[in-house]
């Protein structure tokens, strides 16, 4: 399936990525050829009816919901680009 430049713009916005015009044209070609390749899946009948459970009996494996200290919070916070006390500081949303 070929996709348009408008579609490239739509997907880039959803992906939070920016591209210049040259990159967009290149992506349009590459994405179109990959999407054309995967289109062969349409030859297979059916969609989503078969089970894909990894556990043979189909049950989920859970652990008890217990608080554990896996690392010093300071080590995590130290990686943040900007912080205020024990909070990560972010730019205003609007």
């Amino acid at each position: 399936m070929a996709i348009s430049i408008d579609e490239v713009d739509r997907i880039a916005k959803l992906s939070r990525l920016t591209f210049n015009d040259q990159e967009k044209t290149k992506l349009q070609g590459e994405l179109s050829s990959i999407l054309t390749y995967v289109d062969q899946l349409k030859e297979v009948e059916g969609s989503g009816e078969l089970s894909l459970a990894d556990n043979p009996d189909g049950s989920n494996l859970m652990r008890n919901d217990v608080v554990e200290v896996l690392a010093d919070p300071e080590e995590f916070l130290a990686q943040a680009p900007d912080r205020q006390g024990n909070f990560i500081k972010v730019k205003s949303v609007l």
Partner: peptide
């Protein structure tokens, strides 16, 4: 539906 669900279906067949 056209892509992801279809691919998961084919995945089950391959398995």
């Amino acid at each position: 539906d056209a892509y992801y669900k279809k691919a998961r279906h084919v995945q089950a067949l391959i398995r």
